[in-house]
Simulated assay, not measured.
Amino acid sequence: MKKSSVFAFAVLALATQIASAYDPSPLQDFCVGVDEPNYGLFVNGKFCKDPNLVVADDFYTSGLDVPASTDNADGYNVIGINVERLPGLNTMGLSLARFDYAPYGVNPPHVNPRASEIITVVTGKLYVGFMHYSYYQERSRLFWKVMKRGDVFVFPMGLPHFQMNIENTPAVALAAFNGQDPGKVPMPVALFGSFPPIRPEVLARSLRLDRKVIEYLQAQFQNSTSP
């Protein structure tokens, strides 16, 4: 085989490997999400609105200038701009959120199973981080930073992460996700607030805690959450 042919084959093979690492391109310019078919096509959990009925408002929303209430146990709240609030995001692979933190408020450790996240601080100072577990080293490593206004940090998809306001004044951050509905699994609620509850002996053995401690924690989270 000639050198030129070998080179061309290698380039083609590399391009094929790179392409396979990404989602396929959309089949149309947009797919405004609706809950009923209306002669539409079901894509990614939503039906596509008839393109002839699409209007500018399908791609528009407002309200990120209004703070979310942080009057809760965590001292934190979020305004999410996902496909449910902005139907034009359907199949775009994007979403946005505003995070509000009371003084010392926390967005507890959680997982976004369907998207990576990039966050920037608008006001205040945040302690942020994500955890990565190495099967080879059998330990978890924390990647963390203290962020101030204008700083940016990335949380990889599917890894546990958190943010905490470390000052005695409110804080605000904006986040973007590479998914139209990133999802969220808050770890404390998942462990201690599930319905029905996980058997205490499972958590006691797993977390190296006394059963009474587990039962206390389950009571706290089950009283503050609902199915």
Rank of each mutant, 00 (worst) to 15 (best):
L89T: 07
L89P: 04
L89F: 12
N90S: 14
N90A: 11
T91P: 10
T91E: 03
M92Y: 11
M92F: 14
G93C: 09
G93F: 06
L94Y: 11
L94D: 02
S95E: 05
A97W: 03
A97L: 02
A97N: 02
R98E: 10
D100T: 06
D100G: 06
Y101I: 07
Y101K: 05
Y101G: 10
A102H: 09
A102M: 10
A102L: 10
Y104F: 15
G105T: 09
G105E: 10
G105W: 06
V106N: 08
V106T: 15
V106E: 13
V106S: 13
N107Y: 08
P108I: 08
P109A: 09
H110S: 11
V111I: 15
V111N: 01
N112H: 15
N112I: 03
N112T: 07
N112V: 01
P113N: 01
P113W: 01
R114F: 05
A115T: 02
S116L: 12
I118T: 14
I118H: 01
I119D: 07
T120L: 08
T120S: 14
T120C: 07
V121E: 11
V121R: 09
V122S: 10
V122P: 04
T123P: 09
G124K: 02
G124C: 04
G124D: 07
G124T: 02
K125V: 11
K125P: 00
L126F: 11
L126G: 12
Y127W: 15
Y127F: 14
Y127P: 13
Y127K: 14
G129K: 00
G129H: 00
G129S: 01
G129C: 00
G129M: 01
F130R: 05
M131W: 12
M131C: 12
M131D: 04
M131L: 15
H132K: 13
H132M: 12
Y133L: 08
Y133H: 14
S134I: 06
S134D: 06
Q137I: 06
Q137R: 12
Q137A: 13
Q137M: 11
E138F: 04
E138W: 02
R139Y: 07
S140W: 00
S140R: 03
S140A: 15
S140Q: 11
R141A: 11
R141Q: 12
R141V: 14
L142D: 08
L142Y: 00
L142Q: 04
F143I: 13
F143C: 05
W144K: 15
W144C: 08
K145M: 10
K145T: 04
M147E: 03
R149D: 12
R149T: 14
G150V: 01
G150H: 07
G150I: 02
G150K: 06
G150S: 07
